[in-house]
Amino acid sequence: MDGIPNHVMLKQYSHDATFSDNHVREIPYNGETAMDVYLQLMNSTPGWIDALMRLRNRIASLLGLKHLGNFDDFSPAKKDFNVGDRVGIFTMIYRSPVEVIMEDRDKHLDVKVSFHITPNGNRATVTASTVVHVKNRLGKVYMFFVGPAHKLIVPATLNKLPKI
C-alpha cells in the first residue's frame, strides 16, 4: 500500500498505516544533509499551501483539532535542531545525515513524515514519505479531505527544490 522504499527508515512505521505516500525528486547535490533539504523546503512552501494551512487551522480549531501553526514557524537561521525539537509544525523524532523524520501526534492522528536524501555524485534523490495512523472517526473524516490534498501538496513543495 505505501510504496515507501525499504532504505527509508520511515518504512518501519508504515505497518497498519491508514494513509501513506511517497514522492521522489532528483536535485543537484552539493553535500546537503536531509535536514538541510527539509529546512529549504519549509522555507519555500508555495503560497497556496500556506493559505490552505491557515484555512485548515481555522477549521480544525472549530472542530476541536490541534492548531498546528505554519510550515515555516521556526527560525530559518537555526541549523542545529535536535531530536525532540519542534521544527515548524512537526517534532523531530529521528535525524541522520541522510534522513530526518518528523512527527505530529494528537488524539485523532499520528502523522510521520520523512525526507531522505540519496547522494549520487553531483545529483541526489530526495524521497519524501508520509505515514498516517488514524485513531478515531474524526481522524478518518480529516484524512478524507487531507489525503487527496496531500498528494498535490508534497509534489508541489518538492518542485521548489533546485532542478537538475
Rank of each mutant, 00 (worst) to 15 (best):
D2V: 11
G3M: 04
I4D: 02
N6D: 15
H7Q: 08
V8Q: 00
Y13H: 07
D16M: 12
T18V: 10
F19A: 09
S20D: 11
D21G: 09
D21F: 06
H23S: 09
H23V: 06
E26P: 09
P28F: 08
P28M: 04
N30L: 14
G31F: 14
E32F: 03
A34Q: 00
M35F: 13
M35G: 06
D36L: 13
Y38S: 05
L41I: 12
N43T: 15
N43G: 13
N43C: 11
T45I: 15
G47I: 11
I49E: 08
D50F: 02
A51N: 15
L55G: 15
L55R: 04
R58C: 10
I59L: 12
A60D: 15
S61M: 04
H67S: 08
L68K: 09
L68Q: 01
G69K: 07
F74K: 09
F74V: 08
S75M: 00
P76I: 05
A77F: 10
K78W: 09
K79F: 06
K79H: 13
D80M: 02
V83G: 05
D85V: 03
F90A: 01
F90Y: 10
T91R: 12
T91H: 02
T91C: 08
M92R: 12
I93F: 03
P97K: 10
E99D: 02
V100S: 01
V100M: 03
E103L: 00
R105G: 00
D106L: 04
K107R: 13
L109F: 01
V113M: 07
S114D: 02
F115T: 14
H116D: 08
H116L: 06
T118M: 10
T118D: 09
T118I: 10
P119Q: 12
P119C: 05
G121F: 05
N122R: 14
N122M: 14
T125R: 15
V126G: 06
T127N: 10
T130Y: 02
K135Q: 14
N136W: 08
L138M: 07
G139I: 06
G139M: 09
G139Y: 05
V141Y: 12
V141M: 14
